[in-house]
């Protein structure tokens, strides 16, 4: 009998059923599991085991029945080993971990991020498109250059269909406008007169810049940010490697999504993170 969901247990082996080059040094994978995966929510994450090499936290880009979609950028030996995996190979999955995004109703949904952060934002976009007034969904994506914009085609297609408003930018101007995604976000906030919620995922330094920007606008009623850009070991709250100061919240179970109210209490947000040794490192 197929189990209904993925429990927090030892890794369950899944088989890679699809692999594609998503963008520069980034592969997309579809992994079929012997359990159903629909219960996962946008913002939650899994631990991906590449047998014999490494295990690392990973955002969820999509789900359907027993198939999980992930996007993996080259970031170290574990992700590199995953890039060498092919259709038919086995990988282990643990999850689902963490607290998801919680979108309220009747607001402008402003999704903003870059790099690996686009993975949970893709799933969030999909969820919002199913439930919300299409005009209210804005996605702001930034990357160094066009070939590094993750899910560019996917977002652009929905933009062309009028289902979302996609704002892309690149550092070198090779796609969209030249600059950071915060520039378009700020223009939107300046013009908007209705309540907005910002959802952000990606490198923590970028999140902090978005947070500081969002704070300036009263119409931004909440910001929900994924602090998954930190070292995680167990994923379920035991090892405490991902603890933030001074609150003692663990990103894996008390996060990875934190709201404005909580982000304000995290003094190391955008300042320093802890390495796997526990040592602090400036962000």
């Amino acid at each position: 009998m197929t189990k209904q969901t993925l429990p927090n247990d030892k890794p369950i082996m899944g088989v890679i059923v699809e692999k594609w080059l998503e963008c520069f040094e980034t592969y997309g994978f579809k992994i079929e599991l012997p359990v159903k995966v629909q219960s996962a929510k946008p913002g939650q994450f899994i631990m991906l085991w590449v047998p014999g090499v490494d295990e690392f936290p990973l955002g969820i880009a999509g789900l359907k029945n027993s198939i999980l979609e992930v996007g993996i950028a080259k970031m170290g030996p574990g992700t590199e080993a995953m890039h060498n995996k092919e259709v038919g190979d086995l990988v282990g999955i643990r999850g689902f971990y963490g607290k998801p995004f919680v979108p309220p109703e009747d607001v402008n949904h402003l999704l903003i991020g870059g790099g690996f952060g686009m993975t949970p934002l893709k799933l969030l976009t999909k969820t919002l498109m199913n439930n919300e007034n299409k005009q209210n969904i804005h996605v702001f994506e930034g990357a160094r250059s066009k070939d590094r914009l993750m899910y560019l085609k996917w977002f652009r297609d929905f933009h062309n269909q009028g289902k979302i408003n996609f704002h892309a930018c690149t550092d070198d101007g090779s796609y969209g406008y030249q600059g950071f995604p915060t520039a378009d976000l700020e223009i939107f906030l300046q013009e908007s007169e209705t309540p907005s919620v910002i959802y952000a995922a990606g490198p923590e330094k970028m999140l902090k810049a978005i947070f500081d920007l969002g704070k300036k606008y009263d119409d931004v009623i909440d910001m929900q940010m994924s602090l998954a850009d930190r070292y995680m070991r167990c994923g379920f709250g035991a090892c405490s490697s991902c603890t933030v100061d001074p609150t003692g919240w663990r990103i894996c179970v008390d996060g990875p999504i934190f709201s404005t109210e909580k982000l304000e209490k995290i003094s190391d947000f955008g300042v320093y993170k802890r390495l796997e040794t526990g040592e602090k490192k400036r962000i």
């Binding site: 247990d9 490494d54 295990e55 070991r233 167990c234 035991a238 390495l275 040592e279």
Partner: peptide, 24 residues
């Protein structure tokens, strides 16, 4: 290297090989 901590639900237990990670 990871995996270094995971749960074993059947026996309500955890196995680990963290290996004394610490900052000194």
């Amino acid at each position: 290297p990871n995996p270094s901590v995971f749960a074993l639900n059947e026996i309500r237990s955890v196995i680990n090989s963290v290996g004394l990670a610490n900052p000194g």
